[in-house]
C-alpha cells in the first residue's frame, strides 16, 4: 500500500512538467488574478528599484555630471568601498548599533513582558506608559532626546550639575567616544516596547496547565521559566530578534536627526552614510553599491526570519 504524505504531494505539485505547470496556473487562474495587482505594484515599487540600484552600482556617477552621463566601471565601486577605511568604520558602527540595540531592547522588553504578565494593580496603566516610546514619532523623539542630551544645557547635564555630581554637563553627542552609545540608548528606549508586546503575546500561548503541572512536580520559578515558559517562546523570540535586527540595520531617523552621522563620522551607520553619499555628495554609483551590500546582508537576515516563521507554522501544524 502506498502512503502519500503531505510532503510528497507538495513535491509533486511543485515539480510538474511545463505543461503541468501551465495547466496548474490555468486551473488556479482566479487565484492568480487576485494577487496580480499586488504583484504588479511590487514589481514597480520594489523589483525595479532593486534592479536599478544593482545596475547603478556598476557605474561611475561623477558629482558634477547628470546621472545619464554615468560610465560603466564594473566592480570598481565595490572594490573602492571594501578597501576604504570609512567602510570598515561605518560597518563596525552598524554592527555595534544593531547588536547592542537588538540585544538590550529584547532583554528589556522580555523582562517587562514577564513583569506585566502577572496580575497586579495598575498593570494596564503601566503597560500603556511603557508603550509610549514606541508609538510616538521617531522624529519627535529624536528632537526631544537631542535636548535631553544637549551638551550645554540638556536636562541630564543640568540635573547632574545641580546635584553636584558633575562640574559641567557631560558631553553625550558632541564626543566621538560617547555619541554612538548615547544614540543606542535612545534607540533601545524606542524599541523595547515592541519586544515587550511581542513577548507578551508569546506569553499568552504558554499553557497554564503545563506550568501548574511543573509546580506540582516541585519546579521552582526559575525551573518553570527555563523548562516550560522559555521553550514555548523560542520561536516568537527568534522572530522578535530578527525583526529588531532588520529594523536596526535600516535605522535612519534617530542618528540622522540627532547627529547627522557626526561628529567626525563617529555615529554614521550604513543607512546614514548611504544617504549622505547619495543625496549630499551625489555619488549615486558608490551609494548604490553600498545599498546592494546592505540588501544582501538583509536578505540573509530575511532568510532566517522566513525560516523561523516556517518553523512556527510547522510546529503549530504538528500540535
Amino acid at each position: 500500500m502506498t502512503i502519500v504524505t503531505g510532503k510528497t504531494e507538495a513535491r509533486r505539485r511543485l515539480q510538474p512538467g511545463s505543461s503541468g505547470l501551465l495547466r496548474n496556473i490555468w486551473k488556479h487562474r482566479a487565484d492568480y488574478a487576485y494577487v496580480l495587482p499586488a504583484i504588479a505594484v511590487m514589481l514597480i515599487v520594489i523589483a525595479y528599484p532593486i534592479y536599478y540600484t544593482v545596475e547603478l552600482s556598476f557605474f561611475k556617477t561623477p558629482p558634477g555630471l547628470q546621472l545619464r552621463d554615468k560610465s560603466f566601471i564594473g566592480l570598481d565601486n565595490y572594490t573602492a568601498i571594501l578597501t576604504s577605511q570609512v567602510f570598515w568604520k561605518v560597518t563596525l558602527n552598524t554592527l555595534i548599533w544593531t547588536i547592542a540595540s537588538t540585544f538590550v531592547a529584547f532583554v528589556l522588553g522580555f523582562a517587562a513582558a514577564l513583569a506585566l504578565h502577572r496580575e497586579f494593580i495598575g498593570r494596564g496603566v503601566l503597560r500603556a506608559i511603557l508603550i509610549i516610546p514606541w508609538v510616538i514619532s521617531a522624529v519627535a523623539a529624536s528632537y526631544i532626546w537631542k535636548w535631553i542630551y544637549h551638551s550645554d544645557f540638556g536636562i541630564i547635564g543640568a540635573v547632574l550639575v545641580g546635584l553636584g555630581l558633575a562640574d559641567r554637563p557631560p558631553n553625550f553627542i558632541d564626543n566621538v567616544s560617547t555619541v554612538l552609545p548615547s544614540l543606542i540608548v535612545v534607540n533601545i528606549w524606542r524599541e523595547f516596547p515592541f519586544a515587550m508586546i511581542m513577548m507578551m503575546a508569546g506569553l499568552q500561548t504558554v499553557p497554564d496547565q503545563l506550568l501548574r503541572a511543573a509546580e506540582v512536580d516541585g519546579a521552582n520559578a526559575w525551573q518553570r521559566f527555563w523548562h516550560v515558559t522559555f521553550p514555548h517562546l523560542r520561536n516568537v523570540s527568534t522572530v522578535t530578534i530578527l525583526l529588531l535586527a532588520v529594523a536596526n540595520f535600516n535605522s535612519f531617523i534617530i542618528p540622522w536627526i540627532m547627529t547627522g552621522g557626526g561628529p567626525s563620522n563617529a555615529s554614521h551607520i550604513w543607512i546614514t552614510h548611504i544617504y549622505e553619499l547619495a543625496f549630499g555628495r551625489q555619488r549615486w554609483g558608490v551609494a548604490s553599491a553600498y545599498s546592494v551590500l546592505l540588501f544582501l546582508m538583509l536578505m540573509v537576515l530575511g532568510y532566517f526570519y522566513v525560516r523561523a516563521l516556517a518553523g512556527n507554522e510547522r510546529k503549530e501544524g504538528g500540535a
Binding site: N175, V176, P263, S264, G280, R281
Partner: peptide, 18 residues
C-alpha cells in the same frame, strides 16, 4: 559638497580630536 560637507568635516575632525 565642499562647503556643506568637506569644510564642516575638517572642523569636526580637528575639534573632536579625531
Amino acid at each position: 559638497e565642499i562647503m556643506n560637507i568637506i569644510v564642516p568635516d575638517m572642523l569636526q575632525n580637528a575639534l573632536t580630536g579625531a
